[in-house]
């Protein structure tokens, strides 16, 4: 298959598109799980919007990953016929929804990251990735804004919502270091200017989160036993269950079209 114009190898493009796409696919699935359980009807509509945006990004990215790979796998084959060891998403996005505080905290941490990432990728040297990111960055900005408003309200709302927010941060913070750990493919893509070096967005990300938490009467947890491995296919136990649910019907009818 064609390599990127910037000399990015097809396999590396496949790898990074898969990682970015899996983040979207898995988080979209989690957000869709909220359907009919949201805290207010207006929020049903909002959560579904986030899920739909991310699903759209996932489809573009997985399609690109399939093209780059050149083995004829489309978005569905990649989504439904890989096992959890072959998924490349961050551990953060596969964490269960928990309560609304956990879901919004996860969204804040991820959307702040995705917004910075897409912003840089959209002016990067790989045109197909750049095009997807250019559209996605607008969506990520909106997701970040939604999460920001809620974290602020929950952090500064009632005693209960405040303590739920603190618990959510403690729960999810250990998964944030992984956001900035590059795989080898990522490193090579960054050297060619297709992706930003992850070290370059860690500072801005931390600044965004810190100021957001401050205005929400919250702070970054002090110590964390960092967890990582998602980008290499070492996941938490949660992903297997998510995939079992997502893939079961499709795999039960191997040669069917839908």
């Amino acid at each position: 298959m064609t390599a990127g114009v910037a000399g990015l190898s097809a396999l590396d493009l496949h790898e990074v598109a898969l990682a970015l796409g899996d983040d979207c696919l898995v988080l979209s699935h989690r957000l869709a799980e909220w359907t009919t359980h949201a805290p207010e009807l207006e929020e049903e509509v909002a959560l579904a919007n986030l899920a739909l945006d991310l699903l759209g990004q996932a489809r573009s990215l997985l399609s690109l990953a399939g093209e780059a790979e050149g083995r004829g796998r489309d978005e569905d084959q990649l989504a439904y016929w890989r096992d959890d060891r072959d998924f490349r998403n961050l551990l953060l996005v596969e964490q269960p929804n928990g309560d609304f505080a956990v879901t919004m905290t996860r969204q804040l941490l991820f959307s702040a990251y995705q917004e910075l990432l897409y912003d840089r990728i959209s002016s990067g040297t790989e045109p197909r990735l750049a095009a997807i990111a250019a559209k996605g960055v607008m969506e990520a900005r909106y997701h970040l804004e939604h999460a920001r408003l809620w974290v602020q309200r929950l952090g500064g709302g009632t005693e209960e919502s405040h303590s739920r927010m603190r618990r959510a941060l403690d729960l999810l913070w250990p998964y944030t270091k992984e956001l900035f750990e590059p795989t080898e493919a990522w490193g090579r893509a960054a050297d060619l200017g297709a992706l930003p070096p992850l070290a370059s967005i860690e500072g801005p990300w931390r600044k965004t989160i810190q100021s957001q938490l401050e205005s929400s009467h919250l702070e970054i947890p002090e110590f964390s036993a960092w967890q990582s491995g998602g980008r290499r296919g070492s996941h938490s136990e949660h992903l297997g269950h998510l995939l079992a649910e997502m893939q079961h019907l499709h795999r039960s009818h191997p040669n069917a079209t839908w």
Binding site: E40, L41, E42
Partner: peptide
Amino acid sequence: HAPDPELALQNARDLYTR
């Protein structure tokens, strides 16, 4: 329904401009 103007605007965007 919304608790404040900011969320009212977000909800309006989600609901009436899908």
